[in-house]
């Protein structure tokens, strides 16, 4: 998440800005842990359907790897587009 949105809070005293920055850092930590949990859930749900063994077979492991890598790239692209929209930039058609 970009920090631009806090532009309107520029007139806060220095001390409060620091509190705000700390708050943003904390939200980002929580957010990244949640994203991690969601990624695991999604790739597990999409890739693992057989429970005849207790270890992932080669095919499941490959599927999970690709799913996770794809999700991360997806997530970065979304982040890019999202911040462009936040700044009112035009988007490719």
């Amino acid at each position: 998440m970009d920090k631009n949105m806090l532009g309107d809070l520029d007139n806060l005293p220095e001390e409060d800005k620091m509190k705000m920055a700390a708050m943003i850092d904390q939200l980002q930590i929580r957010d990244s842990l949640r994203m991690y949990n969601s990624l695991v859930e999604r790739c597990f749900t999409d890739c693992v359907d057989s429970f005849r063994r207790k270890t992932l077979d080669k095919q499941e492991e490959t599927c999970v790897r690709r799913c996770a890598e794809k999700f991360l790239k997806h997530s970065m692209r979304v982040g890019l587009r999202f911040s462009e929209l936040n700044q009112g930039a035009p988007t490719p058609d």
Binding site: D46, R65, K70, H74
Partner: peptide, 11 residues
């Protein structure tokens, strides 16, 4: 949007 077959890791 994502193709669920996960044939590759690239978009």
């Amino acid at each position: 949007c994502a193709e669920k077959s996960y044939k590759e890791s690239e978009l």
